[in-house]
Computed example of a mutant assay.
Amino acid sequence: MSAVLLTIGLSVVLGMGAPADSIAQSNGVVVDDFEQDSDGAYPSNWVYVSSDGDVYDVSREMDDDDEWARVQQEDGRSFLRTYAEGTALRITARNGEEFDWSLNEQPWLEWTWRVRSYPEGGNEKEKSANDTAAAIYVTFGTDWIGRPKSIKYTFSSTLGVGATDQQGPLRVMVIDSPNNRGFGDWKTIRRNIPADYRQLFGEDPPNDPISITIWSDSDTIAGQESSADFDEIRVLDL
């Protein structure tokens, strides 16, 4: 089975169209595979964290007309489907609460996603077009003025795979795009988090990341929508 090495960092796109379990087994922690949730349910292992740090149930923040994240079933597989129209959606799993993660023990993050629709013209480097169909954030803490330090692994409508950007304490890394091979198929993506952090921040990461966040938004470019599926989110020792 072939693997495509991306040009930035240590990443592998594996086995497009196949579940992660059929590709590699390793010691690690399952953040979520959505198998414990029923079809149509909100994901039970995720929360909404406000900008003030308050924690709420996911269902409290969802508007089923234009913003939702629900577990779906297809061909015997459970996964999370997100949809955002004119809004930004985020749900978070916290290290030490919903799962446990030490970079010394599990330096790799792996997940599977399938982008269904994306905002035309979305560009993470432009404030006027900063929309994305799918992203995974890893947050490590805060900078000296209290802003979250995060890496955003993103699907970009326009930027090429390997592109990076700095937005205050946020580092953006494009890992997928509609021009990348296999658009519309399941893709399993694996990232070496310490290597990426050193590349993007120029220093060693803290051992215990704060959280992992699933993100999808279409709130900048008028008349656009984003939809993506997520599954098999794991931290691995390879």
Rank of each mutant, 00 (worst) to 15 (best):
I8V: 07
G9D: 01
V12H: 03
M16N: 03
A20P: 00
D21C: 10
A24L: 08
V29A: 00
V29R: 01
V30A: 01
D32Y: 08
F34T: 01
D37E: 05
D39S: 06
N45W: 12
N45H: 12
V47I: 12
D52H: 10
V55Y: 05
D57E: 14
R60N: 07
E61N: 14
D63M: 13
D65W: 14
E67N: 12
E67Q: 12
W68E: 11
W68F: 15
E74P: 00
G76A: 12
R77T: 11
T82M: 04
E85P: 05
G86Q: 06
T92H: 06
D100S: 15
E105I: 15
E110A: 11
T112G: 05
Y118M: 08
E120G: 04
G122C: 13
N123S: 08
N130H: 15
A134T: 02
A134M: 04
A135T: 02
I136K: 00
V138T: 04
V138Q: 01
G141E: 07
G141N: 04
T142H: 14
D143W: 12
R147M: 09
I151P: 07
F155Q: 00
S156G: 05
V161F: 01
T164R: 07
Q167C: 11
G168I: 11
P169D: 03
S177T: 10
N179V: 06
D185G: 04
W186P: 01
K187H: 09
R190K: 06
R191E: 13
N192R: 09
N192C: 08
I193C: 12
P194Y: 14
F201A: 10
E203Y: 11
D204E: 12
P205R: 05
N207S: 15
S211I: 13
I212Y: 06
I221A: 03
G223N: 13
E225W: 11
S226T: 13
D231S: 11
D237L: 08
D237H: 06
